[in-house]
């Protein structure tokens, strides 16, 4: 597989081989990410294809520093938009399960606290991620950004599924405490 830089160069040259190379290198990752949110093969295909079109339309002028993160973010955004359009009956994806876990640890808004914008909150989340070890940071993001299963995370980091479950439980509690300390209510 060719380097990310070369794939980006193909986009800059308006060579459609860039899309094929992108699909070959990251297609599996992108499809699985979209599937965990949408839980529907047809929606996933549409979402990933739209993401490729999005990449085609934005590179150039943009030259992403990290292609994988760039394209994952596009897929996630598109998948979440499609997810919102879907009926409640279809909401049984891995993403639902992962987000459901977070429900209990996110402080509820009171009456006087101001609500934070997503970007502002993102900086606070980054602050939380910076307090974690690298392994815990990966475990947290693989679960709540990528909606990976415990099993997949366990394989990635070399822990048991049970240990991943316990670790995530502790990370959620740490997140809850961190958000409370930061007086974050959204």
């Amino acid at each position: 597989m060719i380097d990310d830089e070369k794939i980006i160069d193909l986009f800059f040259e308006r060579d459609q081989q860039g899309i094929r190379e992108l699909d070959q290198k990251y297609g599996k990752l992108l499809h699985s990410l979209a599937f965990r949110i949408l839980n529907d093969r047809r929606d996933v295909e549409e979402c990933v294809n739209d993401a490729y079109l999005g990449v085609w339309n934005t590179i150039p002028p943009q030259r992403p520093q990290v292609l994988s993160a760039y394209v994952c973010r596009i897929v996630r955004n598109l998948a979440l938009k499609a997810y919102d359009r879907n009926t409640a009956a279809k909401r049984n994806s891995a993403y639902d399960v992962a987000m459901g876990e977070l429900e209990g640890c996110l402080p509820a808004p009171g009456t006087v606290e101001r609500e934070l914008e997503a970007r502002e909150l993102a900086r606070i989340v980054e602050g939380f991620l910076d307090t974690l070890s690298r392994e815990n940071r990966v475990i947290f993001l693989r679960r709540y950004w990528f909606a990976d299963s415990y099993k997949d995370i366990a394989r990635q980091v070399g822990l048991r599924e049970k240990a991943v479950s316990v670790r995530l439980s502790r990370l959620r509690e740490k997140l809850r405490q961190y958000l409370m300390e930061q007086e974050v209510f959204v």
């Binding site: 992403p64 979440l80 987000m99 909150l121 989340v125 690298r134 990966v138």
Partner: peptide, 24 residues
């Protein structure tokens, strides 16, 4: 805090965190 808002915020985090999670 609702999870949708938290999810939106997660979507805004710096790409370096995603790179780490993808390449780990």
């Amino acid at each position: 805090m609702n999870t949708q808002k938290f999810s939106e915020a997660l979507g805004e985090i710096d790409h370096s965190y995603l790179e780490e999670a993808v390449s780990y």
